[in-house]
Design a protein around this nucleic acid. Structure first.
Lengths: 182, 182
DNA sequence: GATCACATGTAAGAAGTTACATGATTCT
DNA sequence: AGAATCATGTAACTTCTTACATGTGATC
């Protein structure tokens, strides 16, 4: 069994859940949407697609191509299972502190699978964020005095960012709960 | 001439501006401070130090070591020049949108060199952030309707994060101006 | 004297970057 | 026919990860 895909791999797998498409299509998505955190370079995408195919998580759809030579990929049953597992596991402290982008990627993709655990996901994020903010605040109380202005400013940027995400998490949870009611 | 160092390389160079120290000391810093975004793995740090030394930006201080075998590095004149250049160049749109961590690293290190261009740095960040937030807001206005709840939430997290940083930039600028007055 | 913390190193492999290469198809 | 675009591929290089290796000085 090969190792886990990188976040680029999961991004590709997730996009293929919305619609089967080719590597070229995926590159265009990375170019024209806020998903542009990912590279659109062919040297990254095509190898990543081959790795997913080798792992049996995606497969090229058989022909019906009178048109250009192109390979349209779709997730396999195993790929859908792996993707749901990835979406489902509880966000950790480390995810929140250093992997925010990946968390938001997972969140965005929850729209592509039925019965995604949206509420528990957001609750875990909130709780880990609270702990993280508390720890940073403790650090600031203890050490801010010895830091130069510039260091304090940089630190404050981080702390304020996490606080903003905490506020976001609260409001996102409220929206998710309202959606569940229906 | 070799290529530019990675951000890990600049992080090491910057820490050596605060105080000459060994690879082991630097690892501990990465372990015990919010600089923990960087890996503390010896497989990353020692090769990075060698690259900086090969480039002539840092040098091991000559002996006076009756104690343990350890190499204490300090920036050279060329290293200090390169570091100031790195701190000085104007933050771009891409820095703000995808390289926030590196920007804050640069900011934190401005406390370690005299006459760092703190105010122009913060002004550039603010202006690029304004443009970025405006573009994201435009994107949201046009495309939010077609996105599922989960996608909208993830997008909102990004937008709110950038807005928080914009507020932070305003207040940081005010503090920097107050400092200049003295 | 054994063990632990200090301090550095290296080897194998994964993943991404840049840059170039190669054909097919559509457009003018 | 020639040019532009579509679509994929590959080669060389860089950096980081994981894991293991090695020796020294301090501590119990």
């Amino acid at each position: 069994m090969a190792s886990r895909p990188s976040s680029l791999g999961y991004a590709l797998l997730g996009l293929l859940h919305f619609a089967p498409q080719s590597g070229y299509d995926l590159r265009k998505t990375f170019l024209t949407t806020p998903l542009s955190v990912f590279s659109d370079s062919p040297g990254a995408i095509y190898p990543a697609l081959r790795r997913l195919a080798r792992q049996g998580w995606i497969a090229a759809q058989p022909g019906a191509r009178g048109g250009r030579r192109r390979q349209v990929f779709a997730p396999t049953a195993a790929g859908r299972r792996a993707f749901r597992d990835w979406l489902g596991h509880r966000p950790t402290r480390d995810d929140v502190a250093r992997g925010w982008g990946v968390l938001m990627l997972r969140l965005a993709f929850m729209g592509a699978v039925p019965d995604a655990p949206l509420r528990t996901f957001l609750e875990a994020i909130r709780s880990e964020l609270q702990a993280h903010v508390a720890e940073l605040a403790r650090f600031e109380a203890q050490r801010a005095a010895e830091m130069p202005l510039e260091g304090r400013l940089a630190f404050a940027s981080g702390l304020q960012g996490y606080r903003a995400q905490l506020a976001w998490a609260e409001s996102a949870l409220a929206k998710a709960r309202r959606k569940e009611k229906r």
